[in-house]
Design a protein around this nucleic acid. Structure first.
Lengths: 368, 368
DNA sequence: CTGAAAGCGCTTACAG
DNA sequence: CTGAAAGCGCTTACAG
């Protein structure tokens, strides 16, 4: 094999190389370079020679070798399902969380690896495959893993979930008080005089959707507004796929009364509404009020800016890293059971320009 | 040390464990489980026993150990500077590219690790530190590394750059034809009757900004419109920091004539303009036309949607991965020199609603 | 064809 | 206090 002749020029320097260059053993070099206690009695001159040699050779301890000894890669995985089918894409929701993850991981000198899946259930084996030492733990973003499959998650890898659709054994879940958030924003709409409030509700099989619906219904009933199931529209959670659904809903209702307000399951779907309403020449908030959920960039850059419910996504991502690192560090310390299984973050109503008062003259949905 | 007693329960199964359980050597287990040629003559019954044992023990080959042998982590790094100072954040530009990276990496079974820096120059040593075997190569996103420092990039690690601010030795750079893009969009504005065109130009020390300015000036001069340097406003490249700058510019010019159109260095700055103009009660495109650059999500969700120059960011991210993997695989194959140092992607004018025709009655910038 | 040994690069525990 | 050896988990090249 010509392998060695090819490799030499581009191979990274090794501890043995440094030792050789400094005229000491690899171990001595190791002791000096990683500042171990054992380096205490290496003479200053030797130490200097070693450091100089390492510098000249641009020596960097090999991460894989270190990981093998320490059983730690210093890398955390972030697992997410990319939506939108074939042209899948990471979205705003992910981006906000990921910003928090990156930030917190950097503070602890951890790298972050993205483990992109297409479907939680189908790709569970791939997720398990990632738990082979390349990451020390994994943050599951909005996982939907049926309990009966949850045993497929490797036991020796710590997990932390964000917005898990259901409880996962031995996994802390971070969530926010979505029901209260939904309750408050719908109550706000009602306080502005709105009564016929459409809810673009995502996907009713999802826990997050159910919680928003509960909040929505509670707000209605506390104002003695009867719940009208025809005002619940399933849109999914992504902006692009939601667009035709909203458009279709609007077209189906041409000539009928425009609702007073629309509450969308998240800001992305809120934007889809904004776009379709604009197409139809319906103005927000003059003709109809519109509110979102999450407070992602989307809500802030929309025109008009969306009134929404803020979930502290960045903080949640950041906290997820801390909890995960905690579990990683104490993996072998006493009991491996988690203390609490849920951390609930508060939500917050964010008032912006997309909510007005019902127009005096009720408007019909126009042809478009 | 009580280490072993603590570790046992949560330790992942090893090849030796599998061998023991199946009554064979670790090597035999290895041969069967990784489907090596050497497994050819292991009896079917033994092979079955091994596979069964591996399944029962949920055996996964340890990534670090494999990496140590193969000198490959099957992980690529994506290096990026997070903007916005302390509350740094990954932005739309990054997200689009990253989507392409993730997609292409997954196809080749590579993981993707994000290496977040704060400043190219100051954190160069950190970047070098990441080249310690944890990644097989690195994609540099919009690097600004002065030539005299470029030798700090480890030789044994392949790099590919996207929108590098200057040529880096032995690094392929992917870029788009920004100058032509800028030329075309300004020409488009001119064709709609606009003549006084402000350019929010980012940061003139950046290559990308210079190219846009060149395109802008070429378009002006080809229409015999004199270049007015006071119409060039430095805004940086990020939406949030650009906001006060745009606001300040507008306030400074209260009572003066509103320009016909504004061309912004990217969509984020475009949005900042949109917001500030809205504050001042100035309508787009009725009072002033506005165009961006990049065609990120921001441009598509703005209201009105922004006319912009599309850079195929996702495709560029995807291609960067392919080129990087190519370099990684051929690292030891013959010469280690790159063949081409630049790949230029075409840009494309995207017409949307944010451009109109100059209003008949010139408008002054109002008090706000 | 099959098994025992060497080695990837590092660190830790153990003799001198 | 310092050095040689063992070992992390795997694979590959080399004797039987």
């Amino acid at each position: 094999m010509a392998r060695s002749t090819h490799k030499k020029p581009s191979r990274a320097a090794t501890l043995a190389d440094v030792g050789r260059a400094a005229g000491v053993s690899a171990m001595a070099a190791s002791a000096v370079l990683n500042g171990a206690r054992t380096s205490s009695r290496i003479s200053p001159s030797t130490r200097e020679r070693i450091i100089e040699a390492a510098g000249k050779l641009r020596y960097r301890p090999n991460a894989a070798a270190r990981a093998l000894v320490h059983q730690r890669m210093n890398t955390i995985g972030v697992s997410i399902v990319i939506d939108g089918g074939a042209q899948g894409e990471l979205n705003q929701y992910f981006l906000e969380i990921f910003n928090g993850v990156i930030e917190s991981a950097a503070v602890s000198n951890q790298n972050t690896t993205v483990l992109a899946l297409h479907d939680w259930q189908r790709d569970l084996y791939r997720l398990a495959g990632f738990c082979d030492g390349r990451v020390d733990g994994v943050i599951l973003i909005a996982p939907r893993i049926p309990s009966e499959l949850s045993s497929a998650l490797p036991e020796h890898t710590p997990f932390v979930a964000l917005h898990s659709d259901n409880p996962l054994p031995n996994v802390v879940n971070l969530e926010s008080d979505e029901e209260t958030g939904a309750f408050q924003i719908v109550q706000h709409l009602i306080s502005q005089g709105h009564r016929r409030i459409v809810h673009m509700c995502g996907d009713q099989t999802a826990l997050g959707a159910q919680r928003r619906i509960r909040g929505y219904r509670k707000a209605l009933s506390s104002a003695r507004i009867p719940f009208d199931p025809t005002l619940l529209i399933e849109t999914g959670f992504s902006q692009i796929p939601a667009r035709p659904i909203v458009r279709n809903w609007l077209k189906t209702n041409i000539g009928r009364l425009l609702p007073d307000a629309i509450f969308t399951v998240n800001d992305g779907v809120g934007l889809a509404c904004l776009e379709v309403l604009a197409e139809a020449g319906i103005k927000v908030p003059e003709h109809v009020s519109l509110v979102g959920f999450d407070d992602t960039l989307a809500a802030r850059i929309a025109v008009p800016q969306l009134t929404t419910v803020r979930q502290p996504l960045r903080a949640m991502g950041s906290r997820a890293v801390e909890l995960l690192l905690d579990r990683i560090h104490h993996k072998h310390g006493g009991e491996n059971q988690i203390k609490q299984s849920n951390v609930v973050f508060p939500t917050e109503l964010v008032l912006r320009a997309s909510v007005g008062t019902p127009s005096a003259t009720p408007k019909l949905i126009p042809q478009f």
